[in-house]
Simulated assay, not measured.
Amino acid sequence: MTILNKIKWVLGILMIFVLILATNLIDRNNFLRVKDSVITIYEDRLVVNDIIFEFSQYVHEKEIAMMGKDSTFYGNRNLEINDKIQTLVRRYSETKLTKEEERIFNEFRQNLEELELQERAYVQTNMIERTSLLSKIDDVKENLFDLSKIQLSEGGRQMNISKKAVDSVDLFTRLEIYVLIFLAIIVQVIILYDPKKSSED
């Protein structure tokens, strides 16, 4: 095998190696995008959706106690619920929040604090004046509704990111196959082409 033939072989193999390396790097980047998107959907959307559901359950329990003028609830259970709500607030705040979500979440926290104050005032009025408390419960429920809608829209946005990344991987995989076939043909031509034979003809 002449030096020229060796160079042809090396160049042919090197072209294939560079192509495979480049497509693998692109595929790896797209894979990481899909992975991050799936993690975000789980940790920052599904888990948060569960937290919102728990918030709603506790707020609903508070509302039922207010409507039924349940004095035993305000003696013990309400303090327990408030502690659980604060734990959920901490868990929620550890997730990634969008700007709009952060704004609503801060408003929600403020409304929770005001709700506790209204509950104390409600108990002090012997459970007669409940207009302010009812209004504050409605504010908290509205915040929870808005936060829930954000989870849905953000989950959809993350799914679109995943879909685009998967489509990109699919496209590059097809291109890689076509280019590999093309390079294989070029390498065969380079290897089989003999300039001495063509000059003799």
Score class of each variant (00 low, 15 high):
I41V: 09
D50I: 14
K84R: 13
T72E: 12
D83I: 04
D27N: 08
L19N: 08
L21Q: 14
I13C: 07
T72D: 10
N24W: 13
N78M: 11
E54D: 07
V18P: 15
G75T: 14
L19S: 07
V38A: 11
T95A: 12
Y92W: 10
L11R: 06
I26A: 13
H60F: 14
I20T: 10
F31D: 10
S37T: 13
R33N: 06
A22N: 08
Q86I: 10
R91Y: 06
L25D: 04
W9T: 14
E94I: 03
R77E: 05
I26W: 07
M15H: 04
L21T: 15
K84W: 09
L19P: 05
S93L: 02
R77Q: 12
L32Y: 12
Q86E: 14
L11W: 13
L88K: 01
V59M: 05
G12P: 07
N24Y: 13
N82A: 10
A65D: 07
L88I: 09
E80M: 01
L19V: 04
T95W: 03
R28Y: 15
M67E: 06
I64G: 06
I39K: 00
V38R: 15
Y42T: 12
V38Q: 12
D36V: 07
V38M: 11
I85D: 06
I85L: 04
L14C: 01
Y74N: 07
L88C: 09
D70P: 01
A22Q: 04
A22F: 12
F31A: 15
N29R: 12
I81M: 03
I51Y: 11
R28T: 13
F31T: 12
I85N: 05
L21H: 15
S37A: 15
T72L: 15
K62T: 10
S56L: 05
E80F: 07
F17S: 08
L11D: 10
F55Q: 12
N30V: 01
G75F: 15
I13A: 11
E43V: 03
R91F: 02
A65S: 12
L97T: 09
H60C: 06
Q86S: 11
V48W: 06
T23V: 10
L79W: 01
E54A: 06
F17C: 02
A65R: 03
T72K: 08
N30L: 04
Q57G: 04
R45M: 02
I13R: 00
I52H: 03
R77F: 03
L79F: 01
L32D: 13
S93K: 14
G12M: 07
